[in-house]
């Protein structure tokens, strides 16, 4: 499916903002294309299901998050159409969540490979994934204080934990 068809299908089914970012590379100027889609939170799960109409197993890369002040924007980076030369299109799906209600449905029931990424966003940004069973820390240690999120730019950022590298030493080290 080419980019125009995908965009047409998205427009037919969803309300939102669509931007196409294309880059021409090399001497032959082959174009690779990323489709940025920004939709409402209510349509999120429906959109992920819609990706399964385009491809049997849509590839999920990562969730990125941006702190925009009053809200957090999550961007889910998917791609469809692998397997043929220049056939793959990136679909980056942006969802804005207000900080007062940082909740979104999990996609691990549809794409199990999204587990690590959801756990990471859960601990780094504090987004609650509705339906995510495994909410243990992935990258932060188990005794990480609750309510502190390193990727946020507000009062929940653990400011007092910065610049402590000198403490990475062993107390009671007998071989001093």
């Amino acid at each position: 499916m080419n980019t125009d068809e995908i965009v047409r299908k998205i427009r037919e089914n969803f309300e939102g903002e669509i931007n196409i970012q294309a880059r021409e590379v090399g001497v032959k100027k082959v174009k690779n294309e990323t489709i940025f889609v920004r939709i409402k939170r209510e349509d999120f799960k429906r959109f992920v299901r819609f990706l399964f109409e385009i491809e049997e197993f849509p590839h999920f890369s990562i969730i990125s998050s941006t702190d925009l002040g009053e809200e957090v924007e999550l961007i889910y980076h998917f791609s469809v159409g692998f397997g043929e030369f220049n056939g793959e299109k990136m679909i980056s799906l942006g969802i804005k969540l207000p900080k007062s209600d940082l909740k979104i449905e999990t996609i691990t029931d549809l794409i199990p490979g999204a587990l690590i990424s959801e756990r990471e966003i859960h601990e780094m940004v504090g987004v609650e994934f509705i339906g995510l069973k495994d909410t243990r820390h992935m990258f932060l240690p188990e005794n990480w204080p609750e309510g502190k999120y390193p990727w946020r730019r507000d009062e929940t950022f653990p400011e007092d934990m910065l610049n402590k590298l000198y403490e990475t030493w062993k107390e009671g080290d007998k071989n001093e």
Binding site: V25, G26, G81, F85, N86, M90
Partner: peptide, 13 residues
């Protein structure tokens, strides 16, 4: 192959 970047678009991996 799927999403050519740099000179891979010319080569066709």
């Amino acid at each position: 192959q799927d999403f050519p970047y740099a000179a891979y678009g010319d080569y066709g991996v």
